[in-house]
Write a protein that binds this DNA or RNA. Structure first.
Lengths: 218, 218, 218, 218
DNA sequence: GATGAATGAGAGTTCATTCAT
DNA sequence: AATGAATGAACTCTCATTCAT
């Protein structure tokens, strides 16, 4: 096994261990257990547990960034809806739920670690750019009223991220749906010109968008 | 020392230890160190560390709920502004920052513990009610346009909470200010009737509101 | 058990473990095994293994210093002989041999640790002073020819220490006896005035000296 | 690469690793790092780490023995001075210091290993012979008074070795100089016949002696 | 009520050693 | 002859928890 594939395997194992145990109970043993290898091998490929976690952060954001490369093939309104629905994922999707649960724990460590913060800022930049692109495209296409795309993007992201976190931590399944319609009515409704309407939930998916773009979704 | 006051002291010590060390490094020793008592005594008053943390959650939300009892003395617009600014606190306020940092870690544990979730739901109910009260009062008073207060409250809370978390985890001080004006322009602006305007940041504080209401703020 | 007596017990256990395993294989487990307590208790009384070893150094030198307080009751020549014989101990005395073996390992670490060096310097000062006192007393009493006590002490100590180490590391039992007579003939013979003679090996012991002084020997 | 040259390379690497890390922190990795080969190869050429160290002992003493083959070209007094100064090397010579530091650690292991002891005995024999040769040559040449060369050699070696060790372990730079003059005045002075004098420190070096003998010093 | 002393389970990490290639 | 990958045993150290006093 090459070093590259070994490191990949460890990253995947870290992902699985994180989903299974959560960050707080993420031990090197738990990571190794997701592998057919021994615990000490982790330290052959990485210098320390911290090093593993840090690399895992990189690993995550790489994958995340890839996902955001959005398509130009569908209309800005649909792309906006897809992005919103990607955020407000189906609460019954246990895999995504446990991933975001772990991510939340991970993010909760960022205030103690400048490197984490830098990662998250980079990721935030990518996310904002994705929203602003859509909003600007919509302005140009005349489907959005005049507004400040940066400001709208900021509010949207805050609301969607906040909603996701509140849903996870309160375990209130109805919550995401409420936020979805809230965002549609309170934020998006004012954005759309006469005649345009925001698609129903799930009508467009980011995966569909990816597919349209010929991308290889997760 | 009565059992009651001993438990109170432990809760306060837990609060302090949490702010100082964060949840991940919160040890029973760290809690005891905030006390003039010994570590073993913690286990006389509580069954386990988990028990302490669980009780601390109760303790927190009790105090939090008290804080939200809002005044009728000032105008709905001002009360709304106060609540918004309470959320988007001054990033230089280190005490609040370290408290919210610890709270974020604590909340990140909720997905693993139904009891935490129940607490957070209760707290969410109180918070929504506070927002909805203000919005409804504003409707009655004719300062807000017609809208669905529940929906607006949901979006507002999600955005404000999301903003707070993103600011903490990205360490981007400018962020809260951006969200504040974003919320003002994107959400609140559409709410206000002609002639009303949203106060500048810091023009009204929740403490002032509390004081007006004769409350004892934290 | 008081903290004091616990620490004492750990020091004794360290001594025993050191003699049994040597410094290189001195583990916290080995120390704990010389105790009826658990390994983790070591870390309750000391911060780290290094801390234990450092304290053990202090402990040793304290005991060593006590031993050196020599008597005025016997003649300088006899005191000198006693000190020489204390150095060139009976090679069959397994306990002393294993102690000095461990001490040698410990001393071999000193070049890497300034604190050890300081300890050894302090101990060297005490040892030199003990030799010089005897030599000066002998000069005053007219049993030693004129000489430089500091110089003689330096050479004597180097030779005795070197001999002890060479004996230990070569496992040559005859060695100490050779050095004893070598020192007697080469160094001490030139020191004695006509009529004085250096006692045979073992004729005077440091313990006897201690006893004469009413001291409590080890 | 022949087995012979590979083993030589490993011995040299062991020497370098030992000087750099000391015996206690001498790992197989550290040895391999001084090589352009891998760690596993060590185990192809040697059975175990212990085996490497044991072979290294052989290696050292071989080289050491070569060094001692002294010249007949210079006077016995000068040869004695050269040997003394070789022992009491310049404390600022970091390379020799770190070598002797490592050697001290190595020697401290000898009590646990009969093979080491045998090596050291052999080396002691060679060293004694070197001193005795010089002393006997001096007797014959009439520059030394009548004395027992074996006894004098024993004391000299013990004193010089002890001095070197004490200097290393106490970190007292002045020490070697004190011992040098002590040995000159206390031991050597009584050896010289009227009219002979012991050279100043550094006046003759073993390297010069080696060179005169056509040897290739280390 | 209150504590100092004690412990076991388990954490991250190191390292000599092995083995398939 | 040579190595990268792999491992198990052992290491130091931490911590929630217990218990005699």
């Amino acid at each position: 096994m090459t070093d590259e594939s070994a490191r990949d395997e460890i990253m995947t194992a870290t992902y699985e261990a994180l989903c299974e145990h959560g960050y707080t109970e993420l031990t090197t043993q738990a990571i190794a257990d997701q592998t057919d290898k021994s615990k000490s091998l982790l330290f052959y490929h990485y210098d320390s547990k911290d090093d593993i976690i840090s690399a895992f952060f990189d690993f995550l954001l790489e994958h995340f960034d890839e996902r955001l490369a959005a398509s130009q093939e569908v209309s800005p309104v649909e792309r906006l809806a897809a992005l919103v629905d990607w955020f407000l994922y189906d609460p019954d999707d246990d895999e995504r739920a446990s991933f975001h649960t772990a991510m939340l724990e991970l993010r909760a460590q960022a205030p103690y670690d400048e490197r984490f913060q830098a990662h998250l800022r980079r990721s935030d930049d990518a996310l904002r750019a994705a929203f602003e692109d859509i909003l600007r495209d919509g302005l140009e296409a005349g489907v959005f009223r005049d507004h400040d795309p940066a400001e709208t993007a900021t509010v949207l992201i805050a609301a969607l991220d906040g909603a996701r976190i509140r849903q996870l931590t309160m375990g209130r399944d109805a919550y995401l749906e409420e936020v979805r319609s809230g965002v549609a009515n309170v934020v998006v409704a004012d954005l759309l010109v006469e005649g345009e309407s925001f698609p129903e939930r799930g009508a467009v998916s980011l995966e569909a968008v990816d597919a349209a773009a010929g991308d290889d979704p997760e």
